[in-house]
Design a protein around this nucleic acid. Structure first.
Length: 947
RNA sequence: GCUCUGGUGGUGGAAUGGUAGACACGAGGGACUUAAAAUCCCUUGCCCGCAAGGGCGUGUGGGUUCAAGUCCCACCCGGAGUACCA
């Protein structure tokens, strides 16, 4: 019987569904294992072949783990909130819930055809109230907690209130927007509004006026990871900096733990590195530089007015400071600028503020700045130092002010050169290697060598000098050792409709949480998805969007009286809100009493294997780790790091095909090999679906577009060969491959094997179907092995093939080398075909081995061997080393890399036996004279003889 | 610029420091067939040679080693991330 994949696959998919084969329970005597895919955003375009790559890999591993006796959690869901559905809604008026639902159904249909072993009973959708209830709940917990640096964890705001009432801010070390200092008397005398304002300074979810990435086109703010090169990731619209009142998450409070946690997890170095760079930890010192006062003397006490703080990673270079620079937003500028400089400075500041983020980034190399006329005093040398203002100092990092050491910082160097400011060398590679910095072509930034011209640290190594200077400034009380992070708090408000509403209402302009028992706060209906005429977010259109404090429910907006009925927050949460904790919800998705039950999380603990794209490295994977750490502080999640092992599937690029139209003759197309000069032809993208192995289907091409109906071709060997190039997979390049087409043509098992066969999972690679035939051929060959099964005992040779395969496949799967595993199957099938092997005892274990890769054919063949259970209940075959041991083993022999031959030796041969065999070998006479001096004998490898 | 990756036939890619190019595609040749499909067999890194055989080969140049695609140093080229982060 032929291999009828279509019939086999749909039959088994139905069987699995009807019998709930992949449903998982939260209790089992078996060890547990959690395999997770990054859930997809269901876009209108449906799945392309890039999506399933990771899903197939994780499915293989999940199925493998099941066969190895694990209770495996392998769920799937949808990241259903997002901009595209809403943009579409704005254009068409179609409610995003409807398009989202349609897209989800389409995704599900496509996923089902590929034969995944997901437990669909556990499906979550971020846009469902039952799910987002817990997103909102977590937000409220963030709102109700602050980060205590002493306890090094999140603590309830209530305990902070208690503390303030008793001792004010004394002894408090907490993450905050602004360092405050007040006494208990002050706290107790403040009214509600003032107290709430102070508490907002500490909350982990807080409202503040902050510079945000405003995207006018999308009508919303965006997080840093949603902006690239001054353009929005979604849509590519310009983004500007703007000061707005926004909800933010104090992710920065967890910066150190986010760095430390990377040590414990099994991710690739490159991914950890991306996160480390994004968090951007740098050690250094905060130093107060006093301003020059009327007498020109140091004035350090009362430092707030008379000094400003800078951050430096190079305190050892403080003797080389020749100017100071403030960012254009610095609050000190107005007060210190001298009357003569006023006009110039104001002009510069205005110019700098009006520049778009894009302009600024595009002109990073251009030097600009202005002198304020004011001077600071170097606290160690008591020198007078001019204070400048420049764009190259950023408001958002450190203190927005720097000490400039042009000799040892390339940016300061460029600035000094441009404005002709002095450059002073204070570090040299050797103690006496001092030269004239005016002759330098670039600054010496490396943190190596010795301090020179540096007062009390002169002669010290750079590292010693750093420590010495910090000690000194700490002793003088003008600074301290400190750590700075690049990681900023995450802006959490979006001025959009299609997202989770904030469970927050405003009483007297103060934000209050909705009682937890009232969650979820459901997304209201709106008449329009655009911002309102007054510029409010779309929720401004909602009629029923006010909070009745007394009756604890949502009511008509028209009833707002600001006494018992108050306005609700109009922003919604960003895309990453729903995806930050979904992996925990899968553990216990039907729980309406809690995010997830204690038992469930105690059982599953964490995600053991997470598979997804590296593009989430500085977004989702940071937020989710933060979210999990917070829940851990709350005693909810069991472990701090949610994703133990992470594999990034490489992006699948498109492989575009081209035809070449002659420039001289517009109706003529030249086959690739006939083109003499590429300048004579115009390459035109053709749909890859009309091309097979780079050969163009001429008839389909003619029908494709009217202008090609009369196309003429110059062929090679009767074929039109297309050119190709690797590009992004996109509709406009006609290189999108839809998995359904391939499933229909070759079957899901072929698609699964082929996607794995294409290359290592982690590696980016262009998609092309040129080799898919080979994989399909293998399955047909594998299928044929099972015709006429025999119960005879397998021969030694057949046993050997089987056990070699068991060993190799197990190794390959364990190290996620699925491409070599597929090759191993092919070799096995080829060998067994050559041996004409039809032994049940050999073939049956093979169906189990292949089941993770090609589950449908495995089920079918498993049944043909006489089993009534599903192959999913089988056990992974046992590897028997003794089956591989041979009587003799061939050993290659080499001599000085020249002479090579092979010896048959007993498998148990020793070094002495080897030496004898070498001497006895006829070939050795050619070169072996006398007794060999040394024999290196590595069993199963090689023998080396040194004369 | 910095960080991380990678560089092996016509192509995708194999190789715990141990016979480089497994496996597959493509290409060429052949068998079966009236024919096609399907299936099977042979050849296929490059150069010299009728052949036996020999020489060269993992981006480049050095090094460690009995032995290097693999380890070390320098350089060249691609891909990704990030970017006045002090």
């Amino acid at each position: 019987m032929d291999y009828n994949f279509g019939e086999i696959e749909s039959r088994w998919q139905n069987y699995w569904r009807e019998h709930g084969v992949y449903h998982v329970k939260n209790d089992s005597d078996k060890p547990h294992y959690y395999v997770l895919d990054m859930f997809p955003y269901p876009s209108g375009a449906g799945l392309h072949v890039g999506h399933p790559l990771g899903y197939i890999a994780s499915d293989i591993y999940a199925r493998y783990k099941r066969l190895r006796g694990y209770n495996v959690l392998h769920p799937m869901g949808y990241d259903a909130y997002g901009l595209p559905a809403e943009q579409y809604a704005i254009q068409t008026g179609q409610h995003p819930a409807i398009t989202t639902e349609q897209n989800i159904n389409r995704y599900r249909e496509q996923l089902d055809k590929i034969g995944f072993s997901f437990d669909w009973d556990r499906e979550v959708r971020t846009c469902e109230p039952r799910y987002y209830k817990w997103t909102q709940w977590t937000f409220l917990q963030l709102f109700k907690h602050y980060y205590d640096n002493t306890a090094n964890k999140a603590l309830p705001i209530a305990s902070l209130v208690e503390r303030f009432a008793k001792q004010g801010t004394q002894g408090l070390d907490a993450a905050c927007t602004e360092v405050l200092d007040f006494s208990s008397e002050e706290w107790n005398s403040w009214d509600e509004a003032k107290c709430q304002q102070v508490l907002m300074n500490y909350r982990l979810a807080y409202l503040a006026d902050i510079p945000v990435n405003w995207c006018a086109e999308l009508g919303t703010v965006l997080a840093n990871d949603e902006v690239v090169n001054g353009l929005s990731v979604r849509g590519g619209y310009p983004v500007e900096r703007k000061l707005m009142r926004q909800w933010s998450l104090r992710v920065s409070a967890y910066a150190q733990r986010l760095v430390d946690g990377l040590e414990q997890i099994d991710w690739t170095d490159s991914l950890k590195e991306i996160q480390r760079n994004w968090i951007g930890r740098s050690e250094g010192a905060a130093v107060w530089f006093p301003l020059e006062n009327e007498d020109g003397k140091l004035k350090i006490e009362n430092s707030d007015d008379a000094a400003f703080e800078i951050f430096t990673t190079r305190p050892d270079t403080i003797f080389g400071v020749t100017f100071m620079v403030l960012c254009p937003e610095h609050e000190l500028i107005d007060s210190i600028t001298t009357p003569e400089q006023k006009a110039e400075v104001e002009a510069y500041v205005t110019w700098a503020k009006n520049r778009s983020e894009r302009e600024r980034q595009a002109e990073v190399k251009k030097v600009s700045g202005v002198f304020t006329g004011a001077y600071a005093i170097n606290p160690l040398t008591e020198e007078k130092i001019p204070i400048w203002v420049s764009e190259y100092v950023l408001a958002g990092y450190g203190t927005g002010a720097i000490m400039a050491v042009p000799a040892h910082d390339s940016r300061d160097f460029a600035f000094a050169r441009h404005f002709n400011l002095p450059i002073r060398q204070v570090v040299a590679l050797e103690k006496d290697a001092v030269s004239d910095p005016d002759t330098w072509e670039e600054s010496m930034d490396a943190k190596t060598g010795y301090s020179v011209n540096s007062g009390f640290v002169t002669g010290m190594k750079v590292k010693e000098a750093m420590a010495a200077v910090i000690n000194k400034i700490e002793e003088m009380g003008i600074g301290h050792r400190t750590v700075n992070y690049r990681l900023r708090d995450a802006i959490f408000s979006r001025q959009r409709y299609w997202g989770e509403p904030f469970p927050i209402y405003y009483k007297n302009n103060i934000s209050y949480p909705i009682p937890e028992e009232c969650l979820p706060l459901e997304l209201p209906e709106v008449s329009e998805f655009k911002p309102t005429a007054t510029g409010e977010p779309p929720l401004g259109h909602a009629q029923k969007w006010a909070w009745d404090e007394k009756n604890r429910c949502v009511v008509e907006k028209s009833l707002i009286d600001n006494k018992t009925i108050f306005p609700l927050e109009l922003s919604t949460m960003p895309g990453f809100a729903g995806s930050s904790g979904y992996y925990l919800r899968y553990m216990d998705p039907h729980n309406d009493e809690a995010y997830f039950g204690k038992d469930a999380v105690n059982y599953w603990q964490k995600v053991d294997l997470y598979v997804g794209g590296a593009e989430h490295a500085s977004g989702h994977l940071i937020y989710a780790r933060f979210w999990n750490k917070f829940l851990h502080d709350m005693g909810m999640s069991v472990v701090e790091e949610p994703f133990q092992k992470l594999i990034n599937q490489g992006m699948i690029q498109g492989r575009s095909n081209f035809v070449y139209r002659s420039k001289a003759d517009n109706g003529l197309f030249l086959s690739k090999g006939l083109i003499k000069d590429m300048d004579d032809v115009t390459p035109i993208h053709v749909d890859i679906n009309m091309v097979d192995n780079d050969v163009l289907d001429i008839e389909r091409f003619r029908q494709w577009r009217p202008e090609f109906a009369d196309a003429r071709f110059e062929l090679e060997d009767g074929k039109y060969i297309c050119g190709w190039e690797v590009e992004k997979m996109s509709k406009s390049m006609y290189n999108v491959q839809n998995p359904d087409d391939l499933v229909a043509r070759y079957g899901a098992d072929t698609l699964r094997l082929y996607e794995m066969f294409l290359g290592p999972v982690e590696q980016a690679k262009p998609w092309d179907t040129n080799g898919i035939e080979g994989v399909h051929r293998f399955l047909k060959k594998f299928w044929r092995l099972f015709e006429n099964l025999s119960d005879e005992a397998p021969s030694k040779e057949e046993q050997k093939v089987l056990h070699q395969t068991i060993k190799k496949i197990t190794d390959d799967v364990e190290r996620f080398s699925f491409n070599t595993a597929v090759s191993t199957f092919m070799i096995c099938a080829n060998t067994l075909t050559d041996l004409k092997c039809n032994k049940r005892d050999v073939l049956k274990p093979l169906t189990v081995l292949i089941a993770p890769f090609a589950p449908h054919i495995a089920e079918e063949l498993w049944h043909q061997t006489g089993e009534n259970t599903t192959v999913c209940d089988a056990e992974w075959p046992k590897y028997d080393e003794s089956q591989l041991v041979e009587d003799t083993v061939k050993y290659p022999v080499q001599f000085n890399g020249k002479m090579r031959f092979t010896l048959d030796l007993p498998a148990t041969a020793t070094q002495a036996d080897a030496l004898e065999a070498v001497k006895a070998a006829p070939e050795s006479g050619k070169w072996l004279t006398g007794e060999p001096k040394k024999v290196v004998f590595v069993p199963k490898k090689i023998i080396n003889i040194v004369c």
